[in-house]
Design a protein around this nucleic acid. Structure first.
Lengths: 376, 376
DNA sequence: GTGAAAGCGCTAACAC
DNA sequence: GTGTTAGCGCTTTCAC
């Protein structure tokens, strides 16, 4: 009640404001600059710059003095000027999809990985009305030192063009040789999931694949290898990446004479849809059928669903990408040798991040007869 | 196969690059600037500036000529310099929560509302390790012209301080008189939901409330009013905003002698948890009980759940906030009169956005006996 | 329509 | 340790 306004020592210059402090000349009507701080502290602007960059060249005492003066007049460093002056920016641009839960998880970890190490991240979203080129162009116009793209749909060549010479790192999307990438060990994930089911005693596994999704090829292949290794009977159904596609698949399965004893869904969303329909039709999980999700750990853990899933380590994905971005910032964009400037470059780097099988309540031993129940 | 690298006409100055075009002096080793474009086009930098700002003062022909020259040497406008030079930026900063699905929806619409009108948005995320002050400070350091905050947790006073004089607009969070806000018509939503249930013939409604959530007070009150208006028997249970809290509530309800014939959940996530437990226990929806979700239209529509819900109009929330932000950018931050600079200002603006009841498959007429079944 | 010139607020090299 | 100085790339007068 009756609290004073924000403690700000300057005011907009519309001629109506009463600046609280008249002590600093020139403080009224515009935000204070380093010059104002220098004047207030009785030092040079260079000194102020040193203090605010944490650069060597000032005593502890001076630093304190300057910071106090800055606080007194309400100085806030101007990132625009800083950005402009530093010829090569070390800021890292991040292109993500609004509406992709997995990307937000990643965003969270990218913030930690980059800003935790003293860096700065600049976000640019892709939405229904804002395509990847636009998003990337924004990042280019800020002259980021490197760009991290999440689940890009653009082809390699187009990505490179849109990035316009800025080093690129792709997360969760396989890229060709001209682009650095970080991705989960999808094949290993499949191996873990299939192995888990085999250990429980399952003899047949169905994989609900998805075409054209990030990592689709690796998972497909990983599934086939793992099934062969474990001597199981594997089958594949093409589905999608949404709850709807999972529900769809469930309906198709229910038309069969008997259900498979276990299913690995392409991701958690598909698993959810699958489970919903099955449960409503009276199928018990995991008594009648075991379900493994994949990919999007956030849903499985946040939901009440208690889904066994192949969890991606977003933290390590983010950290890997941050490291690559920093490396590439120092060395410039990818090229194969002196004078070359080619997509065919040999030295793109890839990093594979381990995945983990999180066993929860949707997997268990199969029925004694080895198969699921028939549909009712 | 063998595709050439990106069509870029300049190269980093590490001494190893062979610039593709030697035509533009100074083009090797740094990105082209307006000066390079001017030289290439044979005009002045001022003209180039005019062209790229779409400012009046150049013929259509000249514009074309300049743009072609720019394209030839691969010029991209430098947003940093532009930002710095324009004394008062018109960019709009947006603070959002990573991991809040509702915010992502809003982000999407904010991009459309702001960039669709020729503006620029600068994003700043709040995550587990990046608090609201930090996020806001980033926006301040870019000298945004205005800031839109989504579901802020900071108190008004703290928000104002963190924004440091930049005009603030809050979405989906009630604020005091010093801050502009846009929010859904939560009371009207309740009225619609209760009315719908009454029309179907329900006599008793349970509201699964949540404390401390955005809009909680408004919904609570709206529920009580609507129940009285419709002459229904209303009751309130305190729950939360997650699937878990909904599941919890379901368990509590199942212990009762009989279920209420209808439930309005605080939001869709809670509704989901509620439904899951009920369905597994053999309760049919909507035959045995009707369920209305609320608030987070994204989940209900994206999910296979087919949930009747009170949908928020994120598009209008976003547009309302964009309009307020633009207005405030022109007039400066809120103050009550000449010389005043106070939180107690009288002229903060609020906008209430209509909500809509989306009727789907989880609501229907009650059982003939007027109540739900007892627990089994 | 054009060109020259003065900054926006900061950094970084250099003298003192 | 400190002050001086010259830009970063753009916008925006102003006189031609």
């Amino acid at each position: 009640m009756g609290a004073p306004g924000p403690r700000r020592k300057w005011a907009y210059a519309d001629g109506m404001s009463s600046s609280i402090s008249g002590s600093s000349p020139g403080a009224a009507g515009r935000r204070p600059t380093m010059r104002d701080v220098a004047r207030e502290a009785g030092v040079s602007t260079a000194l102020v710059s040193i203090v605010f960059r944490d650069a060597p060249g000032a005593s502890e005492q001076t630093r304190k003095h300057v910071r106090e003066a800055a606080g007194r007049i309400g100085y806030v460093v101007d990132e625009r000027a800083r950005l402009l002056r530093r010829s090569r920016s070390t800021d890292i641009g991040v292109m993500f999809q609004t509406g992709q839960p997995f990307h937000h998880q990643l965003l969270d970890d990218l913030y930690s990985a980059i800003e935790g190490a003293g860096g700065t991240v600049i976000l640019s979203g892709v939405s229904s009305e804002r395509d990847e080129r636009t998003a990337l162009a924004g990042l280019v116009s800020y002259r980021c030192g490197a760009v991290i793209v999440l689940g890009a749909a653009l082809r390699d060549q187009q990505l490179l063009e849109a990035a316009d010479g800025i080093p690129l790192v792709s997360i969760a999307r396989p890229t060709g040789r001209g682009i650095d990438w970080v991705s989960s060990d999808d094949r290993r994930g499949m191996s873990l999931a299939v192995g888990h089911l085999a250990d429980l005693g399952h003899r047949d596994v169905l994989f609900a694949a998805a075409e054209d999704a990030a990592g689709a090829a690796e998972r497909h292949q990983g599934f086939e290898e793992a099934v062969a290794e474990n001597g199981l009977h594997g089958s594949i159904e093409i589905g999608g990446t949404t709850e709807l596609s999972g529900a769809d698949l469930a309906l198709r399965l229910l038309e069969r004479e008997r259900l498979p004893s276990s299913v690995i869904a392409f991701n958690d969303r598909a698993a959810l849809g699958l489970m919903d329909v099955l449960v409503r039709r009276g199928v018990s999980i995991p008594q009648d059928i075991s379900i493994v999700g994949s990919d999007d750990s956030e849903i499985a853990s946040r939901h009440y669903v208690d889904l066994t899933t192949i969890a991606q380590d977003t933290r390590r994905l983010a950290e890997g990408a941050a490291v690559l971005a920093r490396e590439r910032m120092q060395s410039g964009p990818i090229r194969s040798g002196p004078g070359a400037m080619s997509t065919e470059s040999m030295d793109a780097q890839g990093r594979v991040v381990p995945v983990e099988l999180v066993v929860r309540g949707t997997t268990g031993p199969p029925r004694a007869d080895g198969g699921g129940p028939g549909p009712r």
